[in-house]
């Protein structure tokens, strides 16, 4: 793959996009998981599916849309979905989680309608659902780069506010942190990252890249910063191994990336379980 990487632009696009997504997806994922919002990424990716399907359908029937990159409409609908989730969470204060299945079903509903209207999209849609090594254009790569800059800037400038809000929302509110504004910006950024990751990981698997590396990292880390670093390292490893396997086996990278992260998670769980069973040095001394 190394020599092909220098030869083919599409491979460079896929590889670089993958590397960037491997950082930003788990970076945001940690904040999503600790706030118990893991399913939000799933809901938004399904809303993105509606946008993609809508765009593909419109490109068949309206000339103006034929040149539009479906990723843009996918991203726009994910952003719209993220704002709707926030609105619904406000409406159901005591059952905030209800917002997620409502938006998820809305996304699938619209997606199914557009796919039916267009009588299927063939390989185009499969690429969006499960990712594709060959479909990432230079334009897609630039979109990923711009979104990554936004994500890194957001985390750099709002890290301490995000930590305070994630750890103890009530305390953050009492100390005067503007949680509402930060939450809305955060949700929009999550939606953008989902939109940006679709080409590589695929709509159906993008949420797993945000949550599985974090699940493994939380088994290893004692500190929040540690969890952040482990999440990114595991995310990057999953993307690298996943992309190499997808290229050599000629299959969708979404599947290989996610299965790699699952294997890493299982190894981490096994290792922490074994470590837990081993008597500590102190216990050994006491027993002796």
């Amino acid at each position: 793959m190394i020599s092909a990487l220098f030869t083919y632009e599409f491979l460079q696009n896929a590889f670089l996009s993958g590397l960037i997504i491997g950082v930003i997806a788990p970076l945001l994922g940690l904040f999503i998981v600790v706030r118990r919002l893991a399913l939000i990424a799933d809901a938004l990716s399904h809303v993105a599916l509606a946008g993609i399907a809508g765009s593909l359908f419109l490109s068949q029937s309206v000339l103006m849309f034929s040149a539009l990159n479906p990723v843009y409409l996918g991203m726009a609908s994910a952003v719209g979905g993220s704002l709707l989730i926030e609105k619904l969470r406000g409406a159901y204060k005591h059952f905030e989680e209800l917002a997620i299945p409502i938006i998820l079903s809305t996304g699938i509903g619209f997606g199914a309608i557009f796919i039916s209207l267009a009588k299927g999209f063939g390989s185009d849609l499969v690429g969006y659902l499960f990712g594709s090594v060959s479909a990432v254009s230079r334009q897609d790569l630039w979109v990923v780069v711009i979104i990554a800059v936004v994500v890194v800037a957001f985390i750099r400038f709002f890290y301490k506010e995000m930590f305070a809000l994630s750890f103890d929302k009530e305390y953050a509110k009492v100390s005067g942190i503007n949680g509402k504004f930060i939450q809305i910006v955060f949700m929009i950024i999550v939606a953008l990252v989902i939109g940006a990751s679709m080409r590589i990981v695929g709509i159906l698997l993008v949420s797993s890249l945000m949550t599985i590396p974090v699940a493994a990292a939380m088994q290893l880390a004692k500190s929040f910063k540690g969890a952040l670093v482990y999440s990114i390292v595991i995310g990057e490893l999953s993307v690298l191994i996943g992309l190499f396997s997808a290229f050599h086996l000629d299959i969708a990278p979404g599947g290989t990336i996610v299965i790699t992260s699952i294997i890493i998670l299982l190894l981490v769980l096994g290792w922490t379980k074994m470590k837990g069973k081993q008597p500590s040095k102190k216990a050994k001394e006491e027993f002796a």
């Binding site: 600790v34 118990r36 301490k160 506010e161 930590f163 305070a164 994630s166 750890f167 103890d168 009530e170 305390y171 953050a172 100390s175 005067g176 942190i177 990292a217 939380m218 880390a221 004692k222 500190s223 929040f224 910063k225 540690g226 969890a227």
Partner: peptide
């Protein structure tokens, strides 16, 4: 009421968060 005991944070990180504002 206030926090999830599985949260990956050290004592120092938690105390520092009191300086956020």
């Amino acid at each position: 009421n206030s926090f999830n005991s599985g949260f990956p944070a050290t004592v120092l990180e938690v105390v520092k968060s009191g300086l956020t504002r």
